[in-house]
Amino acid sequence: MKTYNGMYLMGNHPDEDTFVQAAVRGLEFFDFLEIGLPFSDPVADGDVISNASNTALEKGVTPDKVFRNIEKIRTLVPGHKHLYVMTYANHVYFRGIDTFMEACVSSGVNGIIIPDVPCRESVRFSSVASANGIWYVQFITPESSREQVIEASATATGFLYSISVRGITGGKAGFSDDILDNIRIAREFSRVPVVLGFGIKTIDDGIKSLHSADGFIMGTRLVDMLYSKGLDSFSMFISELSNNYSV
């Protein structure tokens, strides 16, 4: 099966041009991009992404400003490269779920990921997403029971986000039996790729992920690299990834 690997970048961070260029460059290797909308209270994120969120907010980044750049990225990358918005529930709820999904549609977003909406609360979001043709990503975790994995697998569209560890973004990836077993169950029931994320930082982490999952997501490492080392280092790392995995 073809792999489905993704990267996460914070929207408009560290600045608009760098963000757009990194997105386009990264999507030469990755199959999809998750775009974070900065939020004041990112409880699922570790220091690197939380700090990126704060820095973006201090610079006046708003959801609309990020959507404008998503629209731009959409015109610069081929249609089979997918764009997901990753945002906390308040952004979607506060704007109005319909209005938010319409903004996704008009900027060329393919799917939405909301880390503080568990499966049990997801219908009010996923039903509107689906009505607008936007994929709704569900999660499985090391804590999920078999029934929960089956339910998430049955309802996920786009891909199924498999969280490698109990924890927040930016920690150390886990490949324990609880998550590997759940990935196996998910792949049996899911119609979409099962992708491993949280703590995937090295080429080796990626290779390990692909032993069990359909793909991996790299976030913290890339956000950090882009911010602290700049676009050239980021670009070199993308080349390194391309050389190590068959695309």
């Binding site: 699922a44 909406v117 609360e121 999920s144 969280i163």
Partner: peptide, 20 residues
């Protein structure tokens, strides 16, 4: 029974905490 006071309340946390 699902944790709502009318429109308010609910369980909006990462999936990992649901079973906890």
């Amino acid at each position: 029974e699902i944790g709502y006071f009318g429109e308010y309340g609910g369980v909006f946390i990462p999936e990992t905490l649901v079973n906890t």
